[in-house]
Each structure stands twice: as structure tokens, then as C-alpha cells.
């Protein structure tokens, strides 16, 4: 038979699973698995990006009007918060790889904190939209989509929707559905990410990671950066798209 023993696997590391030959193989599999999972995530969000692209090109005025009503300041602050959290996440991976436990825990906690800050700011934004009756359809029963519209010549009221020529409320509502679908799905991913970070913090406090075994931190890091990147796309597409309509 051609079945012979290979070089005996270097046993030893307590985190090596039985079906892998060595830590290197195990780490490679974990990272590749996460990359592939992220590919599926891209396709998942892709369906919504397609709907967005289609309707934005069909109804530019309505989408611009609706977009103008989003809170750019909060959106921009949130973008900064997320980018910063990606930085702390990357540092957490680095400190794990070089085996420095204390800064590693610190960076993970910072990342978690920034993630929660993002979600908090997002909640404030959602609440503003709720106050202005901008929640589409029957998503919240008893609070139908019914925004006040800014009339010509009236004093500017930021709680009122300013409809550009050619925009209809029906399509504005559609924009808000796409907005809530996309940012809601993104927020759900943030919540999951926060859960994963909590696990990482517990495990790293217990000293489970070391330079030989750091792939969980690395893999969650990949996930976190991905969720961050989705937002980097969402922010300009949703918040900034109407600007040139009004000022240009």
C-alpha cells in the first residue's frame, strides 16, 4: 500500500484540533473560512446595493430629497468612530501576535466600546427618524410613514421634509425602507461583532491566546473590518448623495 506515515505531527499545542496536522494548517483553514464567509456577506449586502442602485437611478430627485434629511453630522461622527475601532482592532491582532496580553485586552475593550458607541449614535438617529414619522410602511405599527413636508416660502424647519422638484413621497418612503434595511442589517452585524468581541475579551483575559494561537482574534478582526467597510460604502451612498442636488 502507498499508505505510509508522514513525519509525525508536532503535537503539543493545547488548541490544536485532532484533525489538523499542525497549528499552521489550522490557522490557514480558519482564516480562509472567514474570507469565504465575507464573500457570502458581500453577496448578501449586494442584493440591497442592487435595489439601491436601481431605484436611485430611476428616482434621483426623491432619493436626493430623502437623503438630505439624514443627519450628516451624526453619520460622519459614526464613520470616524468605526474607522478608529478598526484601528484598535488591528492593534489587538498585532499585540496578540507578539504575545503582549495587557495591551491586547485593552485594545479589544476599546474596540468593543467604540462599536457600542456607534450603535448608540445609530439609535439616536433612528429615534429622530421615528419622531419625524419617517419609518416606512408598518415597520412600527401605529406609526405610519407620514412626514411633514416643507412648503414653499415657509420658514425652514429641519423636521420637515424638503421635496425637490420631481420627488414623490412614495419614492421617499422607498428610500427610507432601503435606508433602514441596509443600516439595520449593518447594525445587526455590529451587534454580532460586539458579541464576538466579548468572547474574545473573556478568552484573552484567561490568557488563551499566544503567538502560536491567535487565529480567533485574527478572524474576528477580519469580520470587524468587513463590517466597517460596509459602512464606508453606506455612508456616502445614503447620506451624501443629495448634496450636489441642492448646492450644485
Amino acid at each position: 500500500m502507498a499508505i505510509e506515515a508522514t513525519t509525525q505531527p508536532v503535537h503539543g499545542h493545547r488548541s490544536l484540533q485532532h484533525h489538523f496536522e499542525n497549528m499552521e494548517q489550522q490557522r490557514e483553514a480558519g482564516t480562509l473560512g472567514m474570507w469565504i464567509f465575507l464573500v457570502t456577506e458581500i453577496m448578501f449586502f449586494g442584493g440591497m446595493f442592487l435595489a439601491y442602485a436601481l431605484y436611485r437611478s430611476l428616482y434621483p430627485a426623491a432619493f436626493a430629497s430623502a437623503s438630505n434629511h439624514l443627519d450628516i453630522t451624526l453619520g460622519a461622527v459614526n464613520t470616524g468612530v468605526l474607522i478608529l475601532s478598526s484601528f484598535t482592532m488591528a492593534m489587538a491582532v498585532y499585540f496578540t501576535q507578539v504575545g503582549k496580553q495587557r495591551p491586547q485586552v485593552l485594545c479589544l475593550v476599546l474596540t468593543l466600546f467604540l462599536g457600542l458607541a456607534f450603535l448608540g449614535i445609530k439609535a439616536v438617529e433612528y429615534h429622530d427618524k421615528y419622531e419625524d414619522h419617517l419609518i416606512p410602511g408598518r415597520l412600527i405599527p401605529g406609526n405610519p410613514f407620514n412626514p411633514a413636508v416643507q412648503e414653499e416660502g415657509q420658514p425652514i424647519d429641519h423636521h420637515k421634509l424638503h421635496l425637490l422638484p420631481g420627488a414623490t413621497l412614495e419614492k421617499v418612503e422607498m428610500f427610507y425602507w432601503i435606508y433602514f434595511a441596509m443600516t439595520g442589517m449593518h447594525a445587526l452585524h455590529m451587534v454580532i461583532g460586539a458579541g464576538l468581541l466579548t468572547f474574545l475579551i473573556i478568552f484573552s483575559l484567561k490568557g488563551r491566546f499566544d503567538p502560536e494561537y491567535h487565529s480567533p482574534v485574527e478572524v474576528v478582526g477580519l469580520y470587524w473590518h468587513f463590517v466597517d467597510i460596509v459602512w464606508i460604502f453606506l455612508f456616502p451612498l445614503l447620506y451624501l448623495l443629495g448634496r450636489h442636488f441642492e448646492h450644485g
Binding site: 456577506e41 448578501f44 449586502f45 442584493g47 440591497m48 408598518r138
Partner: peptide
């Protein structure tokens, strides 16, 4: 499987929301 299935997943999800909450695309 990894490239196609997520697309039908989000499609069905949007469909379910559309049916339940009358939010339409």
C-alpha cells in the same frame, strides 16, 4: 453555493418584510 445563496436569502427576507410590513421594493 457561497456566491448565490446569500442573494436569494436577502431576496426572500425583503419579500417577507414587504408582505408583513408593507415596505415595498
Amino acid at each position: 453555493m457561497i456566491l448565490g445563496t446569500p442573494v436569494v436569502a436577502i431576496t426572500i427576507l425583503l419579500l417577507a418584510f414587504e408582505r408583513v410590513a408593507r415596505v415595498g421594493i
